[in-house]
Design a protein around this nucleic acid. Sequence first.
DNA 1: CTGAAAGCGCTTACAG
DNA 2: CTGAAAGCGCTTACAG
Lengths: 353, 353
Amino acid sequence: MSAEVSAFEYRLYPLSSLKSNQKKPPTIKDVAEKAGVSVGTVSRVLAKEVAVKAALRERVNQAMAELDYRVNIAARALRTNQIDVIGLILPDITNPFFSQLAKSIELQAVKRDHSVMLASSQGDSVIERSHVRAFLDRSVRGIVVIAATDNDFSESQSDVPIVSLDRRLGRYPLIATDHERGAALIADHLYGLGHRHIAYIAGPQDTEVGRLRKAGFVNRIKHLSAKGERVKLRIHHGKFDYGSGEQIARKLLKTTAGTQITAIAAASDQLAIGALRVARDLGLQVPADISITGFDDIDLAALVVPRLTTIRQQTDLLAECAMDMVFGSINKSRIKTIEGELVVRDSTAEARQ
Amino acid sequence: MSAEVSAFEYRLYPLSSLKSNQKKPPTIKDVAEKAGVSVGTVSRVLAKEVAVKAALRERVNQAMAELDYRVNIAARALRTNQIDVIGLILPDITNPFFSQLAKSIELQAVKRDHSVMLASSQGDSVIERSHVRAFLDRSVRGIVVIAATDNDFSESQSDVPIVSLDRRLGRYPLIATDHERGAALIADHLYGLGHRHIAYIAGPQDTEVGRLRKAGFVNRIKHLSAKGERVKLRIHHGKFDYGSGEQIARKLLKTTAGTQITAIAAASDQLAIGALRVARDLGLQVPADISITGFDDIDLAALVVPRLTTIRQQTDLLAECAMDMVFGSINKSRIKTIEGELVVRDSTAEARQ
DNA sequence: CTGAAAGCGCTTACAG
DNA sequence: CTGAAAGCGCTTACAG
């Protein structure tokens, strides 16, 4: 009895149909049959080749519509060694600036009928390297990487275009904001407001970004110092995150030397926001007692209290240039620089006396 | 003369080698030859099948190492109708809570040797739908979606597991925080601090999350009202973003009724942070004059001034459960709920008299 | 346990 | 302009 039941059930749901109880999706062959043409012709219609007679094209399109045909991407990839995917590698999607960049990249990719694969390096260039290889294995159309750290990374010669964005990867082309000049704009701004005791919270010096922003700021301050009033500049180093900002600002503002400081220039908005929070904790008014500046202009910069004076990076433009370079000619230039823009908000004011 | 030169150049760089001047990557066939076995055996070693003699396995592994062999993913995908990719669809990667979730998902995927493809729906369920189809076309291993809005979405029956995370997609299984209970915890907290004039800033009511959090909060307040002191509750509706919080709080606090309010409970941290900023603009001290609460516990919640009292969502656990469900048995439960946790920080205090 | 062979669904020279 | 056919690099019954 029980055997009978189970046999009956088996008849109803044979194993093969359990695993996939929908019919197999139609292939190019089905379309060809239905339209009464060869598979080659279907493929040509698919590829939007012009050299197909309108009548045939029409029949093929109709057949595809009727069958709800969808091209098999794996088969195409196997033939062409290429898929419509852009690989994006970044240190941490949680970083608001990177997530803005990721959004822009995705937008650009969709605009070109591509998808994006996302991989986090967690700031580790070994992981980063393995992600690059993995993307290459997948025959992606191109790879965009926001590099973890400086390194001499270089994959064995490959057809796949690799470009770095914001933070340089090895000798690959780079699209980035002019960090040096942006930092100089901040220096000018603070100097113009009469600040002569300034602390600079630098980003990590094992990244080009960190070094460039610091150099841009410091050199500009030196320049101004040389031809005008002298500036006392203290420099501290951290990462780019909130925590570093908090930690460094706390240490800084508690020293006696720290009490003389009238402005803190931070190498990133996150650092600046961390500093903002410390200032508040210590009962300092921003900007009345102390001015604070950032870099990046993440969404949050306009929302913190007080709103942050910073350098705006044009993420949309950066992403667009990166993708242009991926899809563009072979003759890629080494580096493409985008201007940052000084955005003056409420966190800076004239230096207190 | 010029013809000669060009012929010479052509000889040096025939077109085919210009396009790809690296040698073709080795295939399973090359490995088989080198190891002196059949391609079938190589494939079996690749698949880590145990039923391969150690001696052969050894030879194959050696050959693969020497040739630096890498499996062709497209070919495998064509055969198996499956790739080691998880599709992740979310409304906006820029939303800090979603980006935290995305990070956790990617971590989980890597742990299972999968990659993630990212697609933004921009809160539009038509785009969302097309992304689902696109992922299905790619034969991804599974799809995780943070739904744009409520809708009765349902793809034609498919082998590919689809699960929704945080925000429900159609009738697909959902992994989410217990929003209702979380909101009730906030209600208890505020009531316990003596707040009797409360404003609730609700999230969009065309999302289940928005409705559940509101219901959880409102019902709990009603319950407390019924058996204790009465609470005056005002409800306003917005989106989940900073801007809505700012806008609603501003309107709210400027009314005469608004001045009686001693607490604002917001349906998200972003709304709460927007409200925080308005309170500050209007010269209100938080929490002395007014308490403000959020929901999510994004990184930022612990960094704003004052630090935000909120409900912590366990993003790692949410992501893990979602991936367990993707990779898990066929017998998926409709819904899996994770507890939220009340995190009391500095933005709430006893109600002013 | 292993090999020979079929076949996944496309694209693309090659003829005509 | 179109068709017939080869082949991309794998996996997997099927024998043995």
